[in-house]
Nucleic acid binder design. Sequence first.
DNA 1: GCCAACGTTGGC
DNA 2: GCCAACGTTGGC
Length: 158
Amino acid sequence: MTNYWLMKSEPDVFSLDDLKKAPKKTEPWDGVRNYQARNFMRDQMKKGDVVLFYHSNCKEPGIVGVAEISSKAAYADPTQFDSKSKYHDPKSDPDNPRWYMVDIEFVSKVADVDQPVGLPEIKSDPKLADMELVRYGRLSVQSVKKAEFDHVKKLAGL
DNA sequence: GCCAACGTTGGC
DNA sequence: GCCAACGTTGGC
């Protein structure tokens, strides 16, 4: 069964366009350092799951497109063992890695990226009032219900 | 840049 | 195991 997700990225750091421009349009989603987000990736994500791509911490926060999980499952995030990386975690044991990641692949984006399905629109839509994004905004990887996913896709014209 | 709402750390 | 202090997220 396909699972539905929402994943956040700051467009100044890594935008949906960056993903689209990547070779093979797929990139490792490294740097997640939150246990709840990690648990979703490590325990539940699998290839083919679909993802609402959310731009945070920017002028027009909102959902800008769709991606999908392209790695077979989650695997250890190598940046945790790289002392030069800003995601380095000296407490993580290579024999029992603390942090996991998945690869995600570009699928589609809204026609005009300056007009995403914006956060105010999401918050004011009764069909989306139960989204984790609305109820508890700060988690970078969230689970989304199929009905919510379909509704957002419709709003986005995808 | 401010700050609310969290999560994490570490002393005890 | 409690909790104060600190760090982070992210909208505004």
